[in-house]
Design a binder for these strands. Structure first.
Lengths: 329, 329
DNA sequence: CTGAAAGCGCTTACAG
DNA sequence: CTGAAAGCGCTTACAG
């Protein structure tokens, strides 16, 4: 009746609805969920909301979920990989109908070993095919951005972002981006060097700054840095500035993700652009269809990416027009 | 039995637990919630997760909630003030036991008109005393940061952050920060001018940049900008840089919140520091105690703040030590 | 000490 | 067309 599925005389309906108003009645969703076997809530698990990409994606996911009438439970996983497991099992307690998961580490990830998987969509670079997933072709994108730097004249290019310890980064992502970087070097006939593959302690601004500082302390010579995320790139810009190294005059820098800060950093950051909103929509489309029909075969959706060229890679600073490419609606 | 409250022979308990393992049993939280009248989940409502402060606070709240064994449902409210109302009423559907709300607009806010309030903690500057709340003394803090600029030699100081339309900013916050700014001008015997109170279209980086650009277009003369948030300040830095205006040589800039980007912007940003973690802990302490006992009188917790002085306000750039003050654990 | 039963608030299939 | 009853999966007070 409350859901409007039963046919009642309109007068009766009106009287009941007035009574509901007067008594300030609200339906108990626990009871409804128990009865229906659905909660109308999904879970979202991201490494660290304090990081730009996680924040932007969670914003996009919240909007997309809201549009579909879904509530969202959010969890962070960076602190302990165990939390990915907890979240997946919680899905099976019926408090969430499904889960969007950005795995921190693939090997330790739940997905490989869970027997009875709840509806789940993995976002990001993940090397498994048992669940639905949404991804950007990180390898091709990183190759593109690295080739761009080579075209700009860079010859000793640092790839920054592999993890010195394994707290916080999706190793599959690192792997793909590193491959793309190496692809570009090889295509240009440039030598790869271990010295130019710079680790970071964590995927945060501070981590990016620490990685760049370490390079400088070691006296490594380089003329460009391909940072694996925009957040890392912001840290790199900071460390270079502290050291009196100019970007792009002395060193070129690029990022990945095209978060809002990329357009507004100093200098604005050349980066890999893709629509976070589109990413979120694709994830929720997959998830809702999976919730409806669990027998569907696993699907993978690739989100297109492009290169957003800005001043940090030595592009001419086009005043007033420099944001056109990376503009988000 | 599952919760461990009943006394059973240890042998029996072991056998049952093994059976649970084998059958891969997970408790149905909907059923438990229905029975107990508690879901173990709280709601968190913030204006926009894509904004630095919201992202940082939600990160802190998620960690604090996780430590207390609480799940968190997150909602954004900036897009439509109506959502604040929806969330408060949803709390009463028993899917969340309580709510942490960072209200966008006080006047339209739910709190004033809701008859039966669920357990709720308001965070931020709010001019009402019917609910528990956590806040920073924005007025005193903004007075401090403005006085600091005056001490640095600034005379025509812009206060940037009031809303040209009312999408996205807590008007009470704007009000408090504007008062603090005026307090400082008055204390220094400087004239206040409407021309120096710069509106922004929204509380985002882009909004801050737009506000600063408008000032420049109008030809307003100024030697410092007190931005009402760090996010706005980042936009201001960008707009000034695009216009070829140097910070701090030509204009001083300050922010509010001390988000991670403040330490890493170019130049690093002088801002009002306070512990986001402490803020989150206080909010959850208030909320959990309120959930336990709804008859408690409304309480207000003030989080201490301090001035984090960095290069953007003309402080000497102390290489390597410039982050000491604003360092977060 | 242990087991059976009641009831949380819904929704839906069923009887009247 | 309408109303009463069953049952979702738990927890706890109660009877045995």
């Amino acid at each position: 009746m409350i859901t409007g599925t039963v046919t009642v005389r309109s007068g009766t309906r009106a009287r009941v609805e007035r009574a509901m108003q007067e008594l300030d009645f609200v339906p108990n969703l626990n009871a409804r969920g128990l009865r229906n076997g659905r909660s109308g809530m999904i879970g979202v698990a991201l490494p660290d909301l304090g990081t730009d990409f996680s924040a932007s994606i969670s914003h996009a996911l919240l909007e997309a979920a809201h549009r579909r009438g879904l509530a969202v439970q959010v969890e962070e996983t960076a602190a302990e990989p165990q939390r990915e497991y907890d979240l997946v099992s919680r899905a099976r307690t019926h408090l969430v109908d499904g889960l969007v998961l950005n795995p921190v580490r693939l090997d330790d990830s739940v997905v490989g070993r869970m027997e009875h998987l709840p509806p789940i969509v993995l976002i990001g670079e993940v090397e498994q095919h048992r669940t639905d997933r949404v991804f950007v072709n990180s390898r091709a994108a990183t190759r593109t951005v690295t080739s761009h730097l080579i075209a700009q004249g860079a010859r000793r290019i640092v790839a920054l972002g592999s993890m010195s310890n394994d707290a916080g980064a999706d190793t599959a992502t690192v792997d793909q981006r590193l491959r793309g970087y190496l692809d570009a070097l090889e295509a240009a006939g440039l030598p790869a060097s271990q010295e130019l593959q710079a680790p970071v302690p964590q995927w945060t601004i501070e981590g990016g700054a620490a990685g760049a500082s370490l390079l400088l302390e070691r006296g490594t010579q380089f003329d460009a840095v391909v940072a694996f995320t925009d957040t890392l790139a912001v840290g790199v810009l900071h460390a270079l500035r502290e050291a009196g190294i100019r970007v792009p005059e002395d060193v070129l820098v690029t990022g990945f993700d095209d978060v809002e800060h990329a357009r507004f950093s100093s200098p604005p950051l050349t980066t890999v652009h893709f629509s976070h909103q589109e990413y979120a929509e694709a994830a929720l489309d997959l998830l809702t269809s999976r919730i409806e029909d669990r027998t569907l075969p696993p699907r993978a959706v690739e989100i297109p990416h492009s290169l957003a060229v800005r001043e940090s890679s030595g592009a001419a600073p086009v005043r007033g027009a420099s944001d056109a490419r990376g503009a988000r609606k």
